[in-house]
């Protein structure tokens, strides 16, 4: 068991079937996560990051979502094959999720305390009263006074709501935390605080984490490994050092080029030309080829498979940067 990875996803394909057509949200994603490791999932809006996270918990709304194929193994068990009873034992207990928008992620008609205690009561065999005491401890752990236990979400500020959501997510000491852009909706001044809090609690509770973000700075600060996602595929995967210092994929390079830098004198930022392809109508071959500066004729002709570069660094490109 100890050899088992905390999470291993192989060849996950997820589609959304809508009235207008089939949205190819995730197209063959494979990744692995060791215990206590933090993986940064980086990509533009609509690249399929949230869909991947929600597939791990199997909480995608079906329909319209449809998990076409793939395995999501958590501690050796395939989540995709679990029945609803076993799934509920995993959700919120072994794997939990922090959502993007704290303003809407809390139920407005229940107190913060009730919402934290609910998961504890469900998973930890505790009586209501004991669950509430544990919930108060969680509140204090995320830096909120325990007297606020009986407050409702509308009495909390955005940052406090996100702290409460973190408390809900971590209440049962999960093995894996899925943080879906936990700071996007927050004030810049609060972002660092919340990230530090997540990082600190994750260390204390020995939790592995997938941090979804489009902020490369956040990744540099808090992740061990990075996966760059584009149009539902992982383009480059490796340790933070490999991806940042030995960038191989032209898309990854494009992301870095579009960031302002303090050290270099750059007259103008260099955006990646063009737009993300419509996921209902992905281009043949590599989905990035219409925007890629290094594209070759072959790029549009066949599906590109990942190339292993050694040391766990791999890239999905036939003409990578050297």
């Amino acid at each position: 068991m100890s050899e088992e990875k905390t999470l291993s996803i192989s060849d996950l394909v997820v589609e959304y079937h809508t009235d207008h057509g089939v949205v190819h949200a995730v197209n063959g994603v494979s990744l692995g996560l060791e215990a206590r490791e933090t993986l940064g999932l980086v990509g533009e809006t609509g690249a399929g990051k949230t869909t991947i996270a929600m597939s791990i918990l199997k909480i995608l709304p079906t329909p319209p979502a449809k998990i076409v194929s793939g395995e999501v193994k958590f501690e050796g068990q395939d989540i995709m094959k679990m029945d609803s009873h076993d799934l509920r034992k995993v959700r919120g207990n072994k794997i939990s999720m922090i959502f993007q928008d704290p303003m809407t992620a809390l139920n407005p008609v229940f107190t913060i305390g009730e919402q934290i205690a609910e998961g504890i009561h469900l998973h930890q065999n505790l009586k209501k009263g004991d669950a509430e005491i544990k919930a108060m401890e969680m509140l204090e752990m995320v830096g909120i006074r325990r007297e606020r236990f009986t407050d409702y979400p509308h009495q909390f500020s955005g940052g406090m709501k996100q702290r409460a959501i973190i408390a809900i997510a971590l209440a049962c000491n999960p093995k894996l935390l899925l943080a879906d852009e936990p700071t996007t909706a927050l004030d810049v001044t609060i972002q660092a605080q919340v990230l530090d809090l997540i990082g600190e609690l994750k260390e204390r509770l020995n939790t592995a984490m997938i941090l979804i973000t489009h902020d490369l700075g956040v990744v540099a600060k808090s992740c061990d490994k990075v996966a760059i996602i584009y149009a539902g595929q992982i383009f480059e995967y490796g340790t933070k050092f490999q991806v940042y210092a030995e960038t191989r994929h032209p898309y990854t390079q494009g992301l870095f080029d579009s960031l302002p830098s303090i050290n270099k004198e750059v007259p103008r930022l260099k955006p990646i030309p063009g737009l993300m392809p419509n996921p209902m109508d992905l281009p043949a071959g590599c989905p990035f080829h219409p925007r890629c500066p290094r594209a070759m004729a072959e790029c549009s002709e066949r599906a590109i498979n990942p190339t292993d570069l050694g040391d766990g660094h791999w890239v999905r490109c036939i003409n990578p940067i050297n």
Binding site: M54, L57, I59, S84, L87, R88, K89, V90, R91, G92, N93, S96, M97, F99, D101, T104, A105, L106, N107, P108, V109, F110, E118, G119, L122, H123, I165, I168
Partner: peptide, 23 residues
């Protein structure tokens, strides 16, 4: 979103509807 939160917490589906949604 808070319905998704409830599901992610491991709340049973009928309870998601009767408690979290209906209220």
């Amino acid at each position: 979103d808070y319905i998704t939160t409830a599901r992610a917490k491991g709340v049973a589906e009928y309870k998601v509807i009767m408690k979290h949604a209906l209220r």
